[in-house]
Design a binder for these strands. Structure first.
Length: 270
DNA sequence: CGCTGACCCTGACGGC
DNA sequence: TGCCGTCAGGGTCAGC
């Protein structure tokens, strides 16, 4: 269920359970993820103290002094805090057992996620070419404008390109384009500087408010059902094809761009 | 270098 | 009821 707000919500949820804790064991019940979980990962992690839980784009980094555990939740992954020894269910592929008696349980039906090792002082190849964080000052409309020159593919594909900016998934790309009044199919190189300023602003706004909503489910990381909070969010276009635009009433259209569904209002977005 | 499509998987859902 | 095609919020990679 992870877009950036869900990953950040996960990070905030698991962080207090991890900081200062020693890894007792990494139990890998099924190593067949996007890339196979390396045999060397469990031995490498055993006995290490987690010093920080960070996020880079949609990747989570569990830092220790000897290296970091790199986790991605893919499309269907989740991390929950459970009591050690709790019976694993279907698709509960990995447990990270901590010395507190709790463990982080990784659940991922589609197995598009990953558990990898990052050596100390190194940046994993998967992270090496990532663009700026959308909520950082390094990301703004000026950057979008500069990087988009000469690009003929749709602006929606452009803002979902992780080398441009990380963490803008399909839901929030659709929402941000609606809020900024830009048609998702417009060529990235044909969007004006002023509109890119607006778009960058909308991306920040929509992600920030989604993270705030995700925060309401933090307590559910121990026990509870762990439903992601963003369903509660007011979505303007995502999942609303055929329904009236909330701004003008025009029925929303749907179209596939880069193999992903795009929903937009032909009146409000140009 | 930019862009397109294939691919990695399971599960839910709609139509017949 | 069951079978089949389609789609799903991720991202990488080969090939043009």
């Amino acid at each position: 269920m992870p877009e950036l707000p869900e990953v950040e919500t996960t990070r905030r949820g698991v962080e207090p359970h991890c900081l200062g804790r020693t890894v007792k064991q990494l139990q890998v019940r099924d190593p067949r993820l996007r890339w196979p979980v390396p045999d060397t990962l469990a031995p490498a992690l055993a006995g290490l103290v987690i010093t920080a839980v960070e996020r880079r784009g949609k990747y989570l980094l569990f830092r220790t002094e000897k290296g970091s555990l790199l986790v991605h939740l893919g499309m269907s992954g989740s991390l929950r805090v459970v009591a050690a020894g709790a019976e694993p269910g279907r698709h509960d592929h990995i447990d990270l057992l901590l010395d507190s008696g709790l463990s982080l349980r990784y659940h991922d039906p589609r197995r598009f996620g990953c558990f990898l090792w990052q050596a100390p002082g190194e940046v994993h190849p998967l992270l090496a070419h990532l663009g700026p964080e959308p909520l950082s000052e390094a990301f703004d409309g000026e950057l979008l404008y500069r990087f988009s020159r000469g690009r003929r593919s749709p602006v929606k594909n452009f803002i979902m390109d992780g080398t441009v900016v990380v963490g803008v998934g399909n839901i929030y790309a659709n929402e941000a384009l609606f809020l900024s009044g830009i048609h998702p199919g417009r060529a990235a190189g044909r969007v004006s500087p002023a509109r890119y300023l607006r778009l960058a602003d909308c991306i920040k706004r929509v992600l920030t408010s989604a993270i705030e909503q995700g925060g309401t489910t933090l307590r559910d990381f121990v026990g509870g059902d762990g439903k992601p909070g963003y369903f509660a969010q007011q979505l303007y276009v995502y999942g609303r094809a055929g329904q009236p635009c909330k701004a003008c009433g025009t029925p929303l259209r749907e179209r596939r761009l880069g193999q992903r569904s795009s929903v937009y209002c032909v009146t409000c977005q140009r």
